[in-house]
């Protein structure tokens, strides 16, 4: 595990990524693409979920109300995987992979299965960590969709633009995350 770069150059680097996105295309966001990925699989299994519809704004419609909202915007993106937002998220994963193989943070040994802070508190059982991770992932993405965005879209991109919703999101997020992390990972 290599040490992260310190907060000042790190903040400049991370800030530059958010700036680059808004300067060239649009603000960064990730969590919508979990919906798009789901919709791709769903449409593969039952092809009538997403249909073309000349009357909708996007040209696509869905039997699912969420995919159908905003003129079928999500339905369209799920039907066309090579769209900006989806490719962006795949490239983000690729960027993290490359960085980790070029001297960045890369898990080794037991860290592959769980972070040290978890192991210190809850033991080394990978199954226990896996179950907790599935549950946490479920809550995080359900929450992100309820909020209409996640840490990148709402908090970082949002607060960069002085968006009121970004502040509301951060308020909700830290109101539960800080007390829970303190209690959950306390020394026993």
């Amino acid at each position: 595990m290599s040490k992260p770069i310190s907060w000042l150059p790190g903040g400049l680097l991370l800030g530059a990524a958010f700036l680059l996105a808004v300067a060239l295309v649009k603000p960064i966001g990730v969590s919508t693409q979990f919906v798009i990925a789901d919709a791709m699989v769903w449409d593969l299994v039952s092809p009538d979920v997403i249909t073309t519809d000349p009357d909708s704004k996007s040209g696509y419609a869905s039997s699912n109300a969420y995919l159908n909202k905003s003129g079928g915007k999500y339905a369209k993106n799920a039907a066309n995987p090579l769209n900006y937002s989806f490719v962006f998220v795949i490239a983000m994963a690729a960027g993290a992979f490359l960085s980790s193989r070029l001297g960045g943070d890369r898990p080794a040994g037991h860290e592959v299965h769980m972070p040290e802070v978890w192991q210190d508190r809850f033991g080394a059982d990978p199954t226990k960590r896996a179950v907790a991770s599935v549950l946490a992932g479920f809550i995080v993405l359900y929450g992100a969709r309820l909020a209409g965005g996640c840490t990148s879209g709402h908090m970082m991109s949002g607060m960069m633009q002085t968006s009121v919703s970004g502040y509301l999101f951060a308020l909700g997020l830290f109101a539960t995350a800080i007390p829970l992390a303190i209690i959950l990972y306390r020394k026993v």
Binding site: S31, G137, G143, A144, A147, G148, S152, S165, T176, L180
Partner: peptide, 26 residues
Amino acid sequence: KASSLGVVLGGALLGIGFAIAGYCPG
């Protein structure tokens, strides 16, 4: 993005999973 009660509630839910796992979607 639009502000609503859902933003605060969703953020609070996300915070629970964020604290457990140490991951957010991105």
